[in-house]
Design a protein around this nucleic acid. Structure first.
Lengths: 156, 156
DNA sequence: TTAACATACTTTCATTATGAAAGTAAATGT
DNA sequence: ACATTTACTTTCATAATGAAAGTATGTTAA
C-alpha cells in the first residue's frame, strides 16, 4: 500500500496525505517566505532536496491543484511555479509550524517580532500574505509592509 | 543521510523534522480529538498504522519530549501516553490541518460548526483544548463545553 | 551560425522507511 | 495453572528517498 493512499475519512488525514511528506511544505515555504518560483531556486534551498524528488513533488502538488506551472514569458526554459488559492490556504499551517519551531528549537533563526506580529494579528497578516503573493512578492521581500500594515490595522 | 537529520536552521524545517512524517500528527490527533492514550487505542485507528511503525513513532515522540509515557496504575500492562506542554503547542497545527482538509476534501466528515467556532474564537478554543486535555478529556469527549464556553466568551 | 551554457528535468542504483504478518514477554483474568 | 490481554519485537517484501550522472530544449555569445 502506498503512503498517500486513502486511509480514512478524517480531514486531518486528508491534509497529511496531501502535504504531510517531508518536502511539500518546504517547497511551499520557499514560495511563501522566500519568493522562490523555479525548479532551480527550490533546488538551491538549504535542505538540499534531490532533483528526482523535487520533480516528483512538483508534479504531485500540481496534480492536487496546490501549485500551478507556467512557462516564463521572458525565458522559455524556465517554469514558474505559483500557489493556487488552495495552496494559499496552507499559509496558516506554515505560520503555526514556524511558531512551534521558533518556540522549541534552541538554535532557530526566526524573528520573534514576526511571531509576535502573527500572534497579535493573525487574520490580517494571513490576508496580507495572500495579497503579497498574488502580486509576485513574498514574506521576506515584503516583510515591512506586511508587519507594518498589520500594526496600523490595530491603531485605526 | 536519514530523513530526520538536521538539514537547515529554518524553524519550519525544525518542526517538519519533528512531526513531518506521515504518522506523528495522526497519533497526536488521536490524543487531542479522540482521547486515545494507549498503544492498543492508537493501533485501532482507521489509518491502520503498523505495529512496528507505531512503536518507533512513540519512542521518537517521547525522545523529542512531545509525549510522555507512564505505566497505568490500574493495569500495569498498559502504558499511558500523554502530551507534554510542547506537544500541546501542536494543537494549533492540528486545527489548521483540519480546516484545510475540511475545506478542500469533498468527502470530509468534519463538522462545519467546529471549523466556524475555531475561526471565530481560535485563542479561546486552543486554551480550552489544553485544559480539557490536561484533565484527561479530549475534543470529542468535551466538544460541547469547548464550543459553548468559547461562545460564552464572546457574549460576556 | 554554432558552440558553450543554462534550465528543467529523467534515469539509475544504494540506502532508508514503511506495510504486513508473525512472534515474544509480562501482567491480568478465570 | 491456563488462557487472554497488552505492548511491543522481528522478519521480510515493497515503497520512498538520497546521491550522482545523464538527457533535452532554450538561450547567450563568439
Amino acid at each position: 500500500m502506498k503512503r498517500t493512499d486513502k486511509k480514512s475519512n478524517c480531514a486531518i488525514n486528508f491534509s497529511l496525505e496531501a502535504v504531510g511528506d517531508p518536502w511539500s511544505l518546504l517547497i511551499i515555504r520557499d514560495i511563501v517566505y522566500f519568493g522562490k518560483n523555479t525548479y532551480g531556486e527550490f533546488l538551491a534551498s538549504d535542505e538540499r532536496i534531490g532533483t528526482n524528488v523535487l520533480a516528483q513533488r512538483l508534479i504531485a502538488l500540481e496534480e492536487k491543484k496546490i501549485i500551478t506551472k507556467v512557462t516564463s514569458k521572458f525565458d522559455r526554459r524556465k517554469e514558474i511555479y505559483q500557489l493556487t488559492n488552495k495552496g494559499l490556504d496552507l499559509v496558516p499551517i506554515l505560520l503555526d509550524l514556524a511558531e512551534w519551531g521558533t518556540k522549541h528549537d534552541p538554535k532557530t533563526e526566526a524573528s520573534l517580532e514576526w511571531i509576535k506580529a502573527v500572534r497579535a494579528n493573525r487574520a490580517t497578516i494571513i490576508s496580507r500574505i495572500r495579497n503579497v503573493l498574488k502580486n509576485g512578492g513574498s514574506v521576506l521581500k515584503n516583510y515591512n509592509s506586511i508587519v507594518l500594515k498589520a500594526k496600523n490595522t490595530n491603531f485605526r
